[in-house]
Design a protein around this nucleic acid. Structure first.
Lengths: 327, 327
DNA sequence: TTGAAAGCGATACCAC
DNA sequence: GTGGTATCGCTTTCAA
């Protein structure tokens, strides 16, 4: 390319580097040749010398359920707004991080946003490689990490509080998959708040975040209890919807007339007229922006201290729970 | 790294290259040093010399609606199964391809899968750069491209045929956004089949693939018609669901009792008990696999001819349309 | 402002 | 089987 424009490599480099010194004549000359041969600087070669790939790794599991698709788009768009590309890793299960992490360091990404749990060893590896990491809705118990998360426990406390206040006494919970820290936090948050409020009548069924498991979960619960509970707390909206459908279709129950059902996330379908879920919505836009800015700041300045940003969920009163009218 | 292990660069390279000749002693020696200093080969540097980045660009628009999240996961997982990483570009609108394409060539991806339309010029650029492209549910009118798509028109013909057969006469359509070729193909497919079957009574409202626009679309239609039609054909499931909710909640109509509503895609919520959409499901797994294998084959062998693979949608009789029982 | 030359971290080819 | 060397395409001093 330098040859074909009849100038030096350095000159070409400068022309393509914003704010570098090059005469107008040189600019024209190089750009002319560039458009003529369809030249575009090689980002790979640039990355090799500058030690900046301008890529960040995004690790996400179970894209299909939950609100991850939304999160992924938000994060991707905000990163590209800052001139950063996304190297995507979609994990089959939350435990599959090893291979992804390997690639992440081999590709010398400038940073990582992960919505999957990492082991201490993996964190150490990234740390050694000087790759900053931001956890999304995950807070490992290693001392200091960067993390953005929604306060799931507080959200559950709100839900439980409202339900108990409104006279519900017999509770059931449909939890998420065992390997989901988010599910654990939500379920535990609900259980503890129930205990604190003196409610001990709680059955738990395990789900997998999917619609079908919400339906099955409810059937299981009724099987165990011999009758529907007053309220079902599902670990996410999708299972809450499944639960409602099962209650209506298979047991002829009215929701919220005969039973209350609450979810978590605030995904699109939660607002469908057929459900109008009582739920807690995650502030996805703010959380994504927080994750992206936390990461990019630490890419620019690795000295920045570790930080956790916790966002409150947004209570949605909805219409799937019989709540006393005292907002 | 070569120095610290006390061997040549070439030796290190061989040890990390599967199936290269290196003695067991050499292997141990290098691997020892590698684990000691946490060495991992630099994929960027490798890409520079081998002219293979082992990345493919995936360009997708409007991730939030439609079935794109599912498609993205499928494609990503299948690619990583082949040792290929995904560089993701999430477009705000289908027209934003320019910037993404620029990056795609700058990063020297080995290939591109795009679920957004490209201009002839952009295609030419990729072609010059020798980057194979596979279109996903998009078939540009330039002569020869690689494409995987669902036969939307045929799907609509099935839907329309069933509806007309079952006695529906007054039809309405809720189309998708103007810049969506998929919406165009579906809408046109429905309109033409209706015409062919002698139905001329068709109102059309424009939607944006979103739930809200399905609701509004139905209101608009009733406003224009003064009464509900016999059947509404929505350009996707999400709008069909919105339409059903609006009909039920705001007009007290029963679906399918008073009116039939059909969608397209077969997304998760279409199977929810409250809707049980009559729809056409896209065979996402097969289509994703086809896209990935078409692309990887052409990366290995650029001489392969252009190809189009068209998959039939899977008819779902569901329960949102009053269909005669003659399957 | 411009050019020459070194070097980023790997692979490939060629001797040995 | 192993090491030396050129090379990929760029950025970055350093002189001119």
């Amino acid at each position: 390319m330098a040859r074909i424009a009849g100038v030096s490599q350095s000159a070409v480099s400068r022309v393509f580097k914003p704010g570098a010194s090059a005469s107008a004549a040189m600019r024209r000359r190089v750009m002319d040749a560039a458009t003529r041969v369809g030249y575009r600087p090689n980002a790979i070669a640039r990355g090799l010398i500058t030690r900046r790939s301008n890529m960040v790794g995004v690790v996400i599991s179970k894209l299909v359920n939950l609100n991850y698709p939304e999160v992924l788009v938000e994060i991707t768009q905000r990163l590209s707004g800052r001139g950063i590309r996304v190297l995507l890793f979609a994990l089959e299960t939350e435990g599959d991080t090893a291979a992804a992490l390997d690639q992440v360091v081999q590709y010398r990404v400038d940073g990582v946003i992960t919505a999957a749990m990492l082991t201490g060893e993996q964190l150490g590896m990234l740390d050694e490689a000087q790759i900053p990491v931001v956890f999304y809705n995950r807070a490992p118990d290693v001392p200091a990490v960067n993390a953005v998360r929604c306060d799931h426990a507080a959200g559950e406390r709100w839900l439980v509080g409202e339900l108990v206040d409104s006279g519900h006494r017999r509770f059931s919970i449909i939890s998420g998959p065992e390997d989901s820290p988010v599910s654990t936090e939500r379920t535990l948050g609900a259980v503890e708040e129930l205990k604190r409020l003196g409610v001990s009548d709680v059955t738990v069924a395990r789900g997998d975040y999917g619609y079908g498991s919400g339906r099955e979960g409810f059937s299981t619960i009724v099987g165990e209890l011999g009758a529907p509970p007053d309220a079902v707390i599902a670990a996410n909206d999708t299972m809450a919807i499944g639960c409602i459908d099962e209650a209506r279709a298979m047991f002829g129950l009215e929701v919220p007339g005969d039973m209350s059902v609450v979810g978590f996330d605030g995904v699109g379908p939660s607002a469908y007229a057929a459900y109008q879920l009582t739920t807690v919505s995650q502030p996805v836009a703010q959380m994504s922006e927080a994750a992206v800015s936390m990461l990019t700041e630490r890419i620019e300045n690795p000295e920045l201290p570790k930080e956790q940003r916790v966002f409150s969920g947004i209570p949605i009163r909805g219409n799937s729970a019989r709540l006393a009218n005292n907002p």
